[in-house]
Nucleic acid binder design. Sequence first.
DNA 1: ATACCATGAACAG
DNA 2: TGTTCCTGGTATC
Length: 265
Amino acid sequence: MPEGHTIHKIAKDHSKLLVDETLEVSSPQGPFAAHAERVDGAVLERIYPYGKHLFYEWSTGDVGHVHLGLFGKYTVYATDEPPEPRGAVRMRLTAPNATIDLNGPTACTVDEPESRDKILKRLGPDPIHRGAKPDVMYEKMSRSTRTIGELLLDQSVIAGVGNVYRAEILFVNNIHPRRPGKECDPAELEAIWTTAQGMLRAGVKDGRILTVSRSESGVPRGQRIPRSEATYAYKRDECLRCGAEISRADMANRTVYWCPTCQAE
DNA sequence: ATACCATGAACAG
DNA sequence: TGTTCCTGGTATC
């Protein structure tokens, strides 16, 4: 489920296995081979997550870039005897005691640091990062005639929010996704930022998207909340809070979900 | 066996 | 605005 929280969790988990190690970098599938050669045998100095992007900083000065898109997936083998690559493996990173395979990413390249800088420049603030400044988001949203539902998916406005968090952030703030950005008052924009921060950071910790409170989920303490009960509005038939039928529509090429009662237009 | 759909975004025009 | 590219789980035949 690659929204921003997934990316940050991956960076954290993979760093433990790979950073400061001399890595074998290969591309069993092919297309990435030329990129892999540039850093094969180099030391991985850092994995830096930003929004939905991952940057690999190598001792050669090169910077790898991975974007999972909708389908990208990592598989970790915590062993010194990795199995044969499964499926179309775009990139394989092999450390002495671990191997990580990457399948199906939208982007996987190794480039000059400048191309990373270019990507970072077009991204809005990432609420998961400590010290991130929401000003750019406030400014863009408060000036825009576009809907708040579109703005939340625009990575240059706020980085890391995807379709699930979009629905949930708006739900808990009782804001209709079709409301124009400029019609949200400053307090609401601040609440949107704070909510995004809370939800995405919780997602990193939990390793999943869980936006409902334990009490509202109705699931007893100690028991795992199933995915179908982990959101208030996203992909639900009825609102978890009031039971009204959830509305859906296409917005920015994705289905947006909202409760017509809790989020009046 | 086949179709469709999904947590994403670049690109053409 | 529409098209395209990733992959894999689930629905449908």
